[in-house]
Amino acid sequence: MADKTHYDLIVLGGGPAGMTAVVYGARKQMDMLVISDDIGGQTMWSAGIENYLGFPFITGPELVQKFEEHVRQFNVPHEYTRASNLSRTGDRFSVQTHDGRTFTARAVIVATGKSPRMLGVPGEKELIGRGVTYCATCDGPVFAGHDVAIIGGGNSGLDAVVQMMKICPKVYIIERSPELRADAVVVRKAQEADNVEILTGTKVTEIIGEDFVDGIMIDSVDGGSPRRLDVKGVFIEIGLSPNTDFADGVVRLNPHGEIPVDCAARTGIPGLYAAGDVTDVPEKQIIIAAGDGAKAALGAYAYLVRLPVAEDWGQMIT
């Protein structure tokens, strides 16, 4: 099995869209491979889901566990890595992975979802996991007893503030806009806390530290008033960006970096489908991603049944 590198279909991504595509593809007995370094995607981060049909309340990890159990019964091969490049020659796709391997397929479903957006300031990349974190829910408790800064004044940022203000001596919240953008209820909690300092109209210019974070440099959005904050933790909560950097050579992305699709999950490139939050679908919801994944798998199946198998494919993949 380990040597097999060519499939009829490759599914990129292991969230609701990708896993639903796998279920539909497996039931059609498609020759398929999943490439994803995680299972669950953003669903894993959800503390409570109340709008996935059949489950009045379920946590993200619990729903993912159910997805995984469902998918596992089909024994579809799964490579735990990520795509680094997607290319197309004739009617054949080639997927390069971060661990240096190449897989080919006649059809591909891109369901790689979204990841937390990075700030893009000096020191950020170097200090990931060393004080810089994108998952306050995961890593928050590790910073108990230390001063921290939360970047982003939306709901996820304020959720992190409310979590951290109970266990940290001092919590800074930094937001570029003149006002916090989160719901009034959580904003009031932050405003009423003695140990929370709200810095609006403020940007982060640098994250400082050798082995671990020692502080951050901030400034007013217009510049001219730099200040250093001594913090051990930096929680970045400034939204999400689509995981499409590997695909821009094959398909044209929209200005948000998403893959435009039609109502049948087609990208306009024959054999290339996309589903879920990575696409320009108007609502980013688990149930919508799952439905799109089903459409993509059924579309890919119909496409492959009609597509004549090229006799020279053996030469094309070398």
């Binding site: 669950g40 894993m44 981060w45 993200g60 990890p61 829910t137 995961c138 928050g140 408790p141």
Partner: peptide, 8 residues
């Protein structure tokens, strides 16, 4: 206790 990947 709150980290979903830890449970996974």
């Amino acid at each position: 206790p709150t980290c979903p990947y830890c449970h996974q």
